[in-house]
């Protein structure tokens, strides 16, 4: 049995925690990219997904938690309450990366859509209970629509989440795949999760 500090020392090596910092920066900075290119998505878990693919589940979880903590300091305090969503994304992204989810673009999209569904299910109760489904984003109209058709609040928020999250996460995963598949091998080889990104028959 390894103790915790020994486990952390062998798993969170300098390349890993250095990449985790980049992951946090990517998570927080994607808002700017989205605004610059006028894309109607969040893509704010790209950093977590990249870290999950390159380093594994635990680094991705820590990246996610710290991103949301820092986001609640700079953007909106609401982010602090969505840490569970980020946790689900981190864990599932790590598992899918290990199972070869980043080997083909369609696998990446499928895992992204699945992660999106799970994220919507986790974030719906939080969003409904704390904010009544209002996040001051474009998708609020969906909640309004579902409410106007007589749905309960939690259901309306869940439907809204199911309508937007799978698309968002699917594209996030596809982007992560596109980015990682274009990175040079000698860079990716420095990270522990590299062998999950390459087909087995290749050296």
């Amino acid at each position: 049995m390894m103790n915790i500090s020994e486990y952390l020392r062998t798993n969170i090596t300098p390349p890993v925690f250095s990449l985790m910092t980049v992951g946090v920066a990517v998570n927080l900075g994607m808002g700017q990219v989205v605004a610059l290119l006028k894309i109607p998505l969040y893509l704010d878990s790209l950093g977590t997904v990249v870290v999950a693919a390159l380093c594994g589940i635990l680094p991705a979880i820590i990246t996610g938690i710290i991103s949301n903590l820092l986001a609640s300091a700079v953007f909106s305090p609401a982010m602090m309450f969505f840490i569970p969503t980020m946790l689900v994304i981190a864990i599932l992204a790590g598992i899918f990366a290990k199972k070869g989810g980043f080997l083909h673009w369609w696998k990446a999209v499928l895992s992204g859509v699945f992660v999106g569904i799970c994220a919507a299910i986790v974030s719906a109760p939080i969003s409904a209970y704390l904010f009544g489904g209002i996040t001051l984003a474009g998708t609020d109209f969906l909640v309004l629509y579902f409410r106007a058709t007589g749905q309960e609040l939690l259901q309306a928020v869940l439907y809204q989440g199911l309508a937007s999250d799978p698309v968002d996460k699917g594209i996030t995963f596809l982007l992560a795949y596109a980015i990682l598949s274009k990175m040079p091998r000698n860079l990716l080889l420095r990270f522990p999760g590299y062998h999950h990104l390459q087909p087995r028959n290749q050296p």
């Binding site: 910092t21 946090v24 920066a25 900075g29 990246t63 710290i66 820092l70 700079v74």
Partner: peptide, 11 residues
């Protein structure tokens, strides 16, 4: 500590 402090600087 490094990640926590440098997260925002890296942004």
């Amino acid at each position: 500590v490094f990640i926590l402090i440098n997260g925002l600087k890296f942004v």
